[in-house]
Design a protein around this nucleic acid. Sequence first.
DNA 1: TATGGACCCTGTAGCAACTACAGGGTCAAG
DNA 2: CTTGACCCTGTAGTTGCTACAGGGTCCATA
Lengths: 136, 136
Amino acid sequence: MKIGELARATGTNIETIRYYERIGLLPEPGRTDANYRSYSDAHRARLSFVRHSRELGFTIEEIRSLLDLSDDPERDCAEADRIASRHLAQVEEKIAQLALLRDELSRIVGRCRGGVAADCRVIEALGDHGQCETSH
Amino acid sequence: MKIGELARATGTNIETIRYYERIGLLPEPGRTDANYRSYSDAHRARLSFVRHSRELGFTIEEIRSLLDLSDDPERDCAEADRIASRHLAQVEEKIAQLALLRDELSRIVGRCRGGVAADCRVIEALGDHGQCETSH
DNA sequence: TATGGACCCTGTAGCAACTACAGGGTCAAG
DNA sequence: CTTGACCCTGTAGTTGCTACAGGGTCCATA
């Protein structure tokens, strides 16, 4: 399949596919006589893996490690589990951070009573961390 | 105060202060004879506002609007409220997204039974979105 | 008086993970 | 034979910083 078909099949931007190739995340595909990239099902599966992992928030470097692992079926699965577990922990921490931030923001937003900027509680609160209840 | 003192006073990297000046978020300060930047308390307050807003996740462009507002005390506070409310909504959406992602990840991580990569459920799940319960 | 170290300056390049051109080539349908 | 959809390479932009390189300044101490 040509790059446009692959893009449609995986929901990926064409430029992104070429980008992944450039950074060595996807192998270079074959070429047609006209120098068009020509992809196989194996390419499609690999790109799906990459996209799905990206949707789950893994970094490119983590994905590189995961791909290395899946390319070598003898290797210990523990590493994949370690990468995924660490990522899960990061996501949980991010959620906790955002929850604090949300609480602080809703406290600030709730203080608006209309009026002019000079009396604005929102602007006042942004200038003064001392008004916060958490240390974001 | 010199840039290093301002940096310490606000918990900001020196390079970041110069960056904010370069992009017009902070006004150019006066200079000493030796061409060192020289800051006033007004500068310090403005930088604190910027840093605090960044900690709360506002983008530079949002902060620019908020600063414009606070520079013009006649203007209507509603705009500040609108910016903050929209940001709050974005934070809430991000939290919801990450929560889905966390659920999916913990489902995937929980499937690891050890063994070799060829049998790895984690790697298998990453390659196959069909195994997911949500559409992240 | 020299010198060392802490501080400051400008300008540029790097990070992540793409995205968006510009300026060209290829191919099939009408 | 032209039109439009597709493809190519290479480079530059995005966000919000951060990290140099290669210099200048200032002040205390030997």
